[in-house]
Design a protein around this nucleic acid. Structure first.
Lengths: 255, 255
DNA sequence: CTGAAACACGCACTAAAATGCATATAACCG
DNA sequence: CGGTTATATGCATTTTAGTGCGTGTTTCAG
């Protein structure tokens, strides 16, 4: 992991993190960079007086609040999704080719990748593409096609065909439901082919699944559950609910 | 390992190391090159005053932290760009096929379209795609490809080829410079083909041009000025500056 | 209204920077 | 060849930037 040894470097990192995440919390920064909260406060004060961010009680916010589009849906279970995303982001390694599908949790993963990760990411989500643009060493391939406004992704035949052109190391899936027997299911028919392509063109398949989606069944079946290699879910999920997935050879990670 | 015996050689090595690692730490350099920290500091000071790096406490950083993109530029002349965008948005009619290129002004247009506009928009910018997702009756086609992080658009051959699949009614262009004789110019070589495609695949070509870009010349020529059908520019621009464009048959609108 | 968290300020300590000076080496020139 | 000069370097000294801690104050949420 890249060590931060220059104060100025730390400040620039903070600015980038602000652009990615839309806010900075002093206490978190203190832990993240291994310096006291005083130092963080001084940093934030300096950046604020340089006109680079807006200082608020507890942290900082961007000057232009509405530049990065913001989505209401993103709010629910935000904290949980953030936890899952952080755990998921541990699975990536340098120099991999990664596919990221649509969804609020996968978007969260895109904002929580290691800051110096060197990789190529293929995504169908313009929102994720924007988040990734803040990373210096990530090559971004945007998969084109008709935008599905509900999910904010391209999910038509053109997008599916494009995904088929890649053979990735890793894929992050946002799913509507995962059931041990029924498998991966979706509420959107037009997404089925695309998600299937994501799975088939990728070595490891990581599904981030909140507790309510575990064992859930949506109308359209995408693939059997054993196509998944990793499930990231909440800490509080009881072990007996996870056992069926482990029996399928899926590595289950709780965060 | 080549021995470093020339001071100048050492400095060039340091610059290369800076490009490779993104930062230089004085103490490390001292050990690495076997000279005192004083010497390193003098080197860094010299390189800084030559404008080759940014000197910071403890070492040095690149001048442009490789990602000083978009969001900075977006702030400047925001009010003006908004005016131009509102004027530009008047030109769209229902049921048209519209191309929107990259740029801060074109993004502004995307946020200022008539709320009930019924149209199809093709864009290379994920940011614009997100803005457009707010409109109920706009069909969005995202053009895929490698993302240029600086401009936040897809501008590679794949994107250009895709644009060639459309025959649009209208196209909004964000340009680096428009000169009556030299024509439309760009600061980015890789954008040239794409912008040319936008122009050729579109009936009307609307350029939103802030005062400083009117008559400006950037390194790479895209097309002659008479390819433009409409120029939207600032109110304060004197008539004599606009006459050459009108002589080319371009409709000039001041907002 | 009250307790906890965040903040602001001053102080002490460390590391890095600037500055002046001494020395060594290499280049220059008669 | 020998002496002068310019450059590069290291060392000592003073300044300054960065940091953490303690104390008292402000802000915020229940």
């Amino acid at each position: 992991m890249a060590v931060i040894d220059l104060p100025q470097e730390r400040r620039e990192m903070m600015l980038r993190e602000l652009r990615r995440k839309g806010k900075l919390v002093a206490a978190e920064l203190s832990a993240e960079y291994g310096v006291s909260e005083d130092t963080i406060r001084r940093d934030l004060g300096e950046l604020a007086s340089a006109g680079l961010l807006k200082r608020v009680h507890g942290g900082a916010l961007p000057l232009t609040p509405s530049n990065m589009p913001y989505y209401e849906r993103d709010k629910c279970k935000q904290a949980v999704k953030n936890e899952l995303a952080i755990a998921a982001s541990q699975l990536v390694k340098d120099d991999q080719l990664i596919l990221i599908g649509g969804g609020t949790t996968t978007a969260e993963i895109a904002r929580n990748l290691p800051i110096n990760l060197r990789a190529t990411v293929v995504t169908t989500s313009p929102l994720i593409a924007l988040y990734l643009a803040e990373y210096a060493h990530i090559e971004i391939i945007m998969v084109g096609g008709r935008i599905n406004k509900r999910e904010l992704v391209t999910s038509d035949a053109e997008a599916t065909a494009k995904i088929r052109c890649f053979q990735a190391d890793l894929c992050f899936l946002g799913v509507c439901g995962v059931h041990p027997e029924v498998g991966i299911t979706s509420t959107l028919y037009e997404e089925v082919d695309l998600v299937r392509a994501l799975i088939e063109q990728s070595g490891e398949v990581v599904a981030t699944v909140t507790a309510d989606k575990l064992g859930a069944i949506a109308p359209y079946v995408v693939a059997s559950a054993d196509n998944i290699t990793h499930i990231i879910t909440e800490k509080q999920v009881p072990q007996e609910n996870l056992a069926p997935y482990r029996a399928l050879g899926i590595e289950v990670i709780q965060a």
